[in-house]
């Protein structure tokens, strides 16, 4: 049996949405180098819909595949829907991950959540600034 499913290998070999979004509306980074996994997510959001998403990942095959799949699952979706993304959904979409690699899907969920939190924070700050400007 292979280490990973065909789908994991496909997303690992040909990761979708790799890169950076300059002046992103939300940026989130989770994990740490000590543990060997870091994921960074960039979101472009228009009218509360995720119009673009990019990622950068330092990590193993399943970490890269999980990042890639997570971006696919939220691209074009409303922010409210993206907030509901679970690690289970990421793992299932990849046709499963080995038990000891499930934390990679958790990291992907957390990275998206962290980027969305950043978006909400920036949005709130902008609204306050707008009020002041008035």
């Amino acid at each position: 049996m292979a280490l990973y499913s065909e789908k994991v290998m496909d997303h690992f070999r040909n990761p979708r949405n790799v890169g950076v979004i300059e002046n992103a509306d939300g940026v989130g980074e989770v994990g740490n180098a000590k543990c060997g996994d870091i994921m960074k997510m960039y979101l472009k959001i228009d009218d509360d819909v995720i119009s673009d998403v990019k990622f950068e990942t330092f990590g193993c095959g399943s970490a890269i595949a999980s990042s890639s799949m997570a971006t696919e699952l939220i691209k074009g979706k409303p922010v409210s829907e993206a907030m509901q993304l679970t690690n289970k959904a990421v793992a299932e979409a990849l046709d499963g991950l080995p038990d000891y690699k499930m934390h990679c899907s958790v990291l992907a969920e957390e990275a998206i959540r962290s980027a969305l939190d950043d978006y909400y924070k920036k949005k709130a700050e902008n609204e306050i600034r707008d009020l002041h400007d008035r």
Partner: peptide, 14 residues
């Protein structure tokens, strides 16, 4: 520096 070993091995295997 800056990369992780397992992904390196998988791509070398390819």
């Amino acid at each position: 520096e800056g990369i992780e070993g397992e992904s390196l091995l998988l791509l070398l295997d390819d």
